[in-house]
């Protein structure tokens, strides 16, 4: 037998809340926390991060300790150096990051579709624009937050050990952070677009993985048929890997500025458009 309160006091002032997009993003973060999928990915990314940081220390030892002097030349031949090394900092197992984005991003919109809560959100002061902004923001902030320690920790370690002469350039974050932002936005837009086409979170994961692998396969086939390397700009995985290379200026990037800009812009526009269409109030209930 339920126990009812004697009465209900009036609600407090409704003008002190946070913007709806921020509230939605916080709720998605709490939801992600509950899903407990971070243990595997946390462990995997931690190992990769330790490896990157350890390499800085090993490099420092090779440079400063006379005992390791004979190994220096050998190390230079097997380990990436210079601009390639800077770009490689942001490559923490690219497919692992895409898989995490699919696992989390695939359910972002699809879960709301499954639970049919989007019409209720629109009945509250949440505009479709707020909803889209929150989902894109969250899906993009996640890979950005994961990549952030990969850009900053090795840089900090290098500065502490060797100052401006370390293996990581002193200006590296200025080049890596914009590249991370673009790659993360690409991942987020694709994940939200795919999720908006799905009716369940599992289907959303399938859509993200299908689109990522499907466009990669399509790009490879088209390149084989046409012989044009620029068509690889269709491949979102390659695009995400290309941006750090372009910003740090490696000698032979996966693709040039032109195809990278066009490919990224096309993906961003297409998937944002799909997500916007699929989250209109008229599409809110299946």
């Amino acid at each position: 037998m339920p126990i009812y309160a004697p009465t209900l006091p009036p609600a407090p002032d409704l003008r002190h809340g946070h913007p709806p997009a921020l509230v939605l993003m916080r709720f998605d973060l709490a939801r992600l926390w509950r899903q407990k999928i971070g243990r595997f990915f946390g462990f995997a990314f931690l190992i990769l991060l330790l490896w990157k940081v350890a390499r800085i220390y090993v490099d420092h030892l090779l440079q400063t300790n006379q005992t390791f002097k004979p190994m220096q030349d050998f190390a230079k031949t097997i380990l990436t150096q210079g601009a390639d090394f800077q770009a490689d900092l942001l490559n923490p197992a690219s497919y692992l990051l895409w898989f995490l984005v699919a696992l989390v991003g695939g359910g972002l919109v699809a879960r709301d579709t499954l639970y049919r809560v989007r019409p209720l959100m629109y009945a509250h002061p949440v505009a479709p624009r707020d909803y889209l902004l929150a989902k894109l923001g969250f899906a993009s902030a996640l890979p950005f937050a994961i990549l952030l320690p990969f850009a900053l920790l090795p840089w900090l370690m290098s500065l502490l050990l060797a100052g401006f002469n370390g293996p990581v350039w002193a200006t590296a974050p200025l080049r890596l952070l914009p590249a991370m932002a673009i790659s993360s936005a690409l991942m987020g837009a694709l994940a939200v677009g795919a999720s908006s086409m799905a009716a369940t979170p599992r289907a959303g994961i399938g859509w993200v993985l299908g689109l990522v692998l499907g466009t990669a396969a399509l790009a490879s086939m088209l390149q084989g048929l046409t012989g044009l390397p620029a068509v690889q700009a269709l491949n979102p995985v390659l695009l995400a890997e290309t941006w750090p290379q372009l910003f740090v200026g490696v000698a032979h990037p996966l693709m040039g500025w032109g195809p990278a800009v066009l490919g990224t812009a096309a993906h961003l526009a297409l998937w944002t458009f799909v997500a916007a269409r699929r989250t209109l109030p008229s599409e809110a209930v299946i």
């Binding site: 126990i3 009812y4 407090p12 002190h16 809340g17 946070h18 509230v23 002061p125 949440v126």
Partner: peptide, 26 residues
């Protein structure tokens, strides 16, 4: 969450959730 989306501050929304759920007998 719905309280926050309606414009309540986070802390006020949490307090309000308790009040309303008690009112409906949960």
């Amino acid at each position: 969450f719905w309280g926050e989306l309606s414009g309540l501050a986070p802390e006020a929304a949490r307090d309000r959730a308790h009040e309303v759920l008690y009112f409906v007998g949960l």
